[in-house]
Design a binder for these strands. Structure first.
Lengths: 235, 235
DNA sequence: TAGTGGTCTAGACCACTAA
DNA sequence: TAGTGGTCTAGACCACTAA
């Protein structure tokens, strides 16, 4: 089945076990690199790579001259997968469909969403669209794309490929910021999602950069009764 | 200011720049370790650590005998900080208060939340409580703690320390699963949060394990108009 | 100022796998 | 089967910092 563990993996496993079992509580000093290399009969480099990995994972903290210490339990955090909507729907075994409701080119003004962080006077592509799963409304999407940062978007055919998927395939990004909120559906949104007015929706806002430049800002709104975000995490 | 970059950091930066600028697109084969070590005049070990780091970060994929390749753009994902509620509120400069509404010891039955993954017949501590910011309702919390896994919880004083904070300080965990949804507040919940019935709320469910054993299951419900989850992420 | 961690070298052997 | 990446060795020098 699984190949034999390497020496580094074995050392890492034994240290992790002592930490996670509580045998080495937060603040406990773990053996120095020199002690561990003597203990396992290996070079210090092998131990160094193990401890560097544990530090990167947040399980230990390392201080020159002082040693390595079991870290205080991390604030819980979760790696959340922000899905590509077509892939998400097809992964459920449902038929994906996409509607481009509106597409216009305009300049950014004073009333852009503050979270978009767009200066006035930028050339924008302003898109409104809807994602459907098995013919039922799944998500409503409002998106702004900076044409200065992504000029090729002006020629893209967003009736054929949803803009999120197109961007993922064509434009590298360096940073993204997300904001997840719950909102009561306003009448227009409720109609678009096939919900009673006031129905709870999950709103995911995302702003994506390349370097200092905002590439795109999007707000995707999902029916609260049909969608949830899931995440699994280890410390 | 910042100290000079090490050679490894410089190599990593130059490769990242080529990938993120699109000069090396997805699927592009990057130079072999031997080529890079010749190019930078360093040992192969130095290059190996750089490429291993890039692979761990998901920017490249490595295949024996074939080489290292720029990875397809990652599905967007986000590192979400699941906050310790008292720390979150105090971080906003607001006064934190906590109310323990109900505390009982009971056995798990057939009607536990399916996401809790609790077998029937387990000894449970069942807690209901409310978090307040500057005297206003902030979050409603329903929590189950397995007394088999965390016997010390039976003696803890949860009128003084909220259970989430107590657990974070006392119990190491190995894995957590989260589920984030939007819900319309049912009448009882709306009263507890000071919302009109049907108001949108953000619900965060979390199940936490140590090894194979469930430690705790919690559902925290936040006023949608007063709370959002934020996340910042690089690929 | 003494001792830790951070980084690097110049090798080595091997598992894996694409050709 | 040839060549890559994966891992390891036995050193070295240095920056940083706790004592």
């Amino acid at each position: 089945m699984s190949r034999a563990a390497t020496l580094g993996e074995r050392i890492r496993g034994e240290i992790e076990t002592r930490i996670l079992s509580g045998e080495w509580p937060p603040g406990h000093r773990i053996p120095f690199e020199s002690e561990l290399s003597a203990l396992y009969g290996c070079s210090r480099m092998t131990v160094n790579k193990v401890l560097a990995g544990l530090a990167e994972a947040g399980l230990i903290e390392r201080r020159r001259r002082a040693g390595s210490f079991v870290a205080q339990p991390a604030l819980q955090s979760a790696v959340l997968r922000i899905p590509d909507i077509p892939a998400e729907i097809q992964g459920r075994g449902e038929a994906y469909a996409f509607e481009l409701i509106d597409r216009r080119t305009r300049e950014s003004g004073a009333h852009e969403p503050p979270a978009a962080g767009l200066m006035p006077g930028l050339a924008l592509l302003d898109l409104t669209c809807r994602h459907l799963a098995d013919g039922r409304p799944f998500a409503y999407e409002e998106r702004l794309i900076s044409l200065a940062a992504v000029p090729a978007a002006a020629q893209a055919d967003f009736t054929a490929v949803p803009p999120g998927t197109w961007l993922l395939q064509h434009v590298p990004w360096t940073q993204a910021e997300h904001r997840i909120t719950a909102v009561n559906a306003a009448p227009r949104l409720a109609r678009a999602l096939g919900l009673p007015a006031g129905g709870a929706c999950l709103s995911v806002e995302r702003r994506t950069w390349r370097g200092p430049e905002t590439l795109t800002y999007v707000r995707q709104t999902f029916r609260g009764d049909a969608y949830s975000l899931g995440a699994r995490f280890s410390p």
